[in-house]
Design a protein around this nucleic acid. Structure first.
Lengths: 307, 307
DNA sequence: GTGTGGTCACAAGGTAGCCTTGTGCCCCAT
DNA sequence: ATGGGGCACAAGGCTACCTTGTGACCACAC
């Protein structure tokens, strides 16, 4: 939970823009507010933080050391916010006149926003018009349908193989990892390792039948007798919460649990002799290469950042 | 720059808490506001986003598909905000009764907040009291002084070697990378590679003399005749901005430019035959191991995440 | 059937924060 | 000397948010 001393996004953004432009006035102009509003907002933030962030001179404002640190930390927050913005914009677009992209949930949640931001930044850099996207997030099977039927011009799917009947290109690999809550017995082992047989015999927290995540694990464990799940949930977030609370082990995408593992909310367990990697493919119809233009550019961005 | 449809941090936090608790009421209680305020804040956010985020039932609220996506994107924003919070809290602490940590700028900006969050999360998990920190961010030389004089109980420094006279432990490696703006001629080469001699002969954007970043590069290029810098700036942020604007190449910490490289604001250039890695060390006085308690725990966290 | 607890929505009222307009001052460059 | 850029202070208005109070609905227990 967030403390009460954290400024809101707009305040952080103001600070970063001031750092870039060198003055409150120009930052205010860039953000479309008056200089006085910017000045006031900045003073509010300084009171919140409890330290001066700018050293104001007659010819602009420079950052203090504290301001310098806060700018760096803010940049990371704002980068994430920019990805959120890109994703949201793609969700919201009117369906006409835009590139329609369909993506599996994992890709839409963890990778696509970054690709959209990178592509936009690249288009701006090269002076190209910025593409607007329509995003549909659904399961891999439905993504393939949408691309085949023309509902989407480009799709991103996950799974052991690319779907048949569509052109495709490998854009990355998402490894599935097994996680447990920090209090789980497996997390107390120094090795943090179990055998595939042990995992297969343990009731797990799983996504609903048909989800790509679940399919990959069941296929990898197909030589072992199946065990009924302890809990079946319809969203990745719910699975993460249940596992963190100690419900049992689960297999989730490495991207999906990266932050939780880093902060200790989840603990990663190695499983001996189990291949849980799944491939991420871009798919489209019509030719060996994606249609020229934004679709091809987006695939190129994804390939460049997928590794 | 952020669009006008991005909710503020408090609204994103509400959504994530609702996703975890399953109801608006309990989320409101956890955040210390009334149920009505939470309901209203949520409706405001739904209007902003332009789509329903919750499906409200008589026994709680579940996420819609859009809500599910937004929760994932928000989590990343909030994780970054939590690191900002941890860093800010460490900066703000009263100087008595807390663990005093001094860190070089690079470490304080890019790594330490994550360590603080991880340590706090670990302490909460194990039921230990949560340590409060005092953070001083300065250059490596001064960090070593502070630890030697007892001003700080623990320090983190960067440089080719650990300072003499202090106990130390390697906690990670930060590679220095050479970057140019996206329009720079080097960025147009398909190889994106130059020789060390070319780099040495090119006027660069540099930090002020004495900074760890500058020292590492000059030492690596010591066999080549020195070239006066095109621009000398006192902060990493200023160097990044100058390089992005096309002022010339610069060498910066890989952590510092990771986001910029990912979004295309900066382009990374390989330099043949140049070792630009620098080691990150924890330093303390008194014994072979850091003093037991939070200092030792923090070093352990840093070692665990440094690789 | 009825009470109880839990959920969410609607309405009214107050407060506080934020933004704009207007103004003054200072310094530097021309 | 003068204009322009930059920041702060003050006043006023509006908006957004939060709280209190209320109602409706549903599940479950008795």
């Amino acid at each position: 939970m967030l403390g009460s001393h954290v400024p809101e996004l707009r305040a952080l953004e103001l600070l970063v823009v001031v750092a870039r432009t060198g003055s409150l006035s120009s930052a205010a102009a860039e953000l479309g507010i008056t200089q006085q509003a910017a000045s006031s907002r900045m003073r509010t933030m300084e009171a919140l933080v409890g330290a001066p962030l700018l050293s104001r001179t007659r010819r602009g404002s420079a950052l203090t050391e504290t301001g310098e640190l806060l700018v760096q930390w803010s940049s990371r927050v704002l980068d994430a916010a920019e990805q959120l913005d890109a994703g949201l914009t793609a969700l919201r677009q009117d369906r006409r006149g835009h590139l329609a992209v369909a993506a599996s949930l994992t890709i839409a949640e963890y990778l696509l926003p970054g690709w959209l931001v990178a592509l936009r930044s690249q288009q701006e850099r090269l002076g190209q018009p910025v593409t607007e996207f329509t995003l549909t997030a659904t399961n891999s099977e439905r993504v393939a349908q949408m691309v085949a039927s023309g509902e989407a011009a480009l799709g991103f799917v996950e799974g052991p193989e690319a779907p048949e009947g569509l052109s495709h290109r490998l854009v990355g690999v998402d490894e599935l990892v097994v996680v447990v809550g920090p209090h789980h017995p497996w997390a107390q082992r120094s090795s943090r390792r179990v055998s595939a047989a042990t995992l297969a015999a343990t009731p797990r927290v799983v996504r609903e039948a048909g989800s790509g995540t679940r399919t990959v694990l069941e296929r990898a464990l197909r030589d072992h007798p199946p065990t009924p799940p302890v809990l079946e949930l319809t969203s990745t977030a719910a699975v993460r919460a249940a596992v963190a609370a100690g419900a049992g082990p689960a297999a989730l995408g490495a991207h999906a649990v990266r932050d939780d593992v880093a902060t200790g909310r989840l603990v990663r367990i190695s499983v001996s002799g189990l291949d849980l990697s799944r491939r991420l493919h871009a798919v489209w119809t019509g030719g060996a290469h994606p249609p020229a233009g934004p679709a091809r550019d987006l695939v190129a961005v994804a390939v460049g950042r997928g590794r």
